[in-house]
Amino acid sequence: MSMAGFGYTRPATLDEALADLAKHGPDAKLIAGGHSLLPLMKMRLASVGHLVDIGRLRELKGIRDWNGGLAIGAATTYREVLGSALVRDRFPLLIEGLDDIGDIQVRNRGTLGGSLAHADPASDMPALALALDAELLLRSSGGERTVKVDGFFHGAFVSDLHPDEVMVEIRIPASPDGAGTSYVELTQPASGYSLVGVAVVLAKSGGTVSHVRVGVTGVADHAYRASAVESTLMGSDGGSAAIAAAAAHAADGQEVNSDIHADREYRTAMATAFTRRSVESAAARAT
């Protein structure tokens, strides 16, 4: 397939990028790695008047300490994250969740911020960011704001990111001491996206669960925190019985997706099964 024509600029600075966005208005679209956007443009499913390429902006790259957690530039690639000793040390969950995204080419080009901004309902990164309590630094020519990832996703491919905004940074606070983490997924074999993906961060204190976050992707029209699972687990002993009871709530309150790979009944059952498995694994890793 061949794309329709479009304009293209590659600004040298973030301010220039913001000015470009403002100038081209709603027809403009940001591109970083392009591995979600370009296929859609080739299929002519996304009509883009003007592309603003932020993939090489140094201001959007890099991984640094942030209050004991990490701030990751939005245009940092999967490959850069996977190769980072800091990430490996502080957030092994990101390594576990991202190391099988796409293939090597996708990981070399795809960016964390791109994935979050794209808001694909079956991407892994949104579930990971939810479990990690991440927040996002967004900037427009009018100023900047930070938003929690929890609440950022509104629907399939729809997020809280405004058309004139650039995601600058993903900020991940330090996890509680001794937290165990896990990401398990049931992969759709054709696309590699998750039919169900469950990210968990869990900590115990004095024999009971003192912190738990469960991010679920692939199940509904956007990634969500399984709050009923979390509230059932909090204060429990985090044993198998408690985990199984909590996992039963994995899809509570969600309009569960149905497609040729997983109908509603199967997907709902797998949300529970993979939530149970992921929580079990995180609990076993918690110290």
Binding site: L45, G155, D221, N257, D259
Partner: peptide
């Protein structure tokens, strides 16, 4: 056409909405 054959995973939810 195109939207049916490549958008299957989101069509029903989107149409419903």
């Amino acid at each position: 056409g195109m939207m049916a054959s490549v958008g299957a995973r989101m069509i029903e939810g989107t149409a419903n909405k």
